[in-house]
């Protein structure tokens, strides 16, 4: 009922003997100690808070068993960018206030990075549809969409969506 597996997470190989039924999300959180990947729905795979990248693609890690990731490369939020070297999408999220409680944020970022690799210059409607698998309860999504659009434009050297005026109080 157990198996020894090696999963590479953010470039580090983790070799662990795990129960066959262990969910990948619990492997990441409990075995690797990477708690930036969150759990919000616990079985239907709807909320997307646990989204990570497996071999570069966004997947909900609560919908996989750890043993299925044996030999695979996984990137979690902890591998996206560091405090001093944030990914441009992380920067945009902070700039546009695209997170409040932050619980859904890791999953959104891991999905959005995959999405922007696929669609380099998406429309607002495309961004919104790309986010269907990530529920957010705080933001109303507007700022998230703005941040993703801004990050996608920056990437191509296009003029970024202007950042919110830092000093301008409301009229």
């Amino acid at each position: 009922m157990e198996k020894t597996i090696t999963v590479t997470v953010n470039g580090t190989a983790y070799t662990r003997t795990v129960p066959l039924r262990l969910l990948l999300v619990d492997f990441i959180r409990d075995e690797c100690g990477l708690t930036g990947t969150h759990i919000g729905c616990t079985y239907e795979g709807r909320c997307g808070a646990c989204t990570v990248q497996i071999e570069g693609r966004a997947h909900k890690s609560c919908m996989k068993l750890a043993v299925q990731a044996d030999g695979k490369e996984i990137t979690t939020i902890e591998g996206l960018g560091s405090r001093d070297n944030l990914h441009r999408l992380q920067q945009a999220f902070s700039r546009y206030h695209a997170l409040q409680c932050g619980f859904c944020t890791s999953g959104i970022l891991m999905n959005a990075v995959d999405f922007l690799n696929e669609n380099i210059n998406p429309s607002e409607a495309e961004v919104r549809r790309a986010l269907v698998g990530n529920l957010c309860r705080c933001t109303g999504y507007s700022h998230i969409v703005e941040a993703i659009l801004a990050a996608s434009a920056t990437r191509h050297g296009l003029k970024p969506v202007p950042p919110p005026a830092e000093t301008e109080p409301p009229p």
């Binding site: 708690t35 930036g36 990947t37 996206l80 960018g81 206030h97 932050g102 944020t105 970022l109 005026a165």
Partner: peptide
């Protein structure tokens, strides 16, 4: 009156939030 970027963001954006399960 300023739209300062949030102090909370650095940890939340890098997966270093401190939620109950963590």
């Amino acid at each position: 009156g300023r739209s300062l970027e949030r102090r909370e963001d650095a940890r939340l954006l890098t997966g270093r939030g401190e939620y109950l399960a963590d």
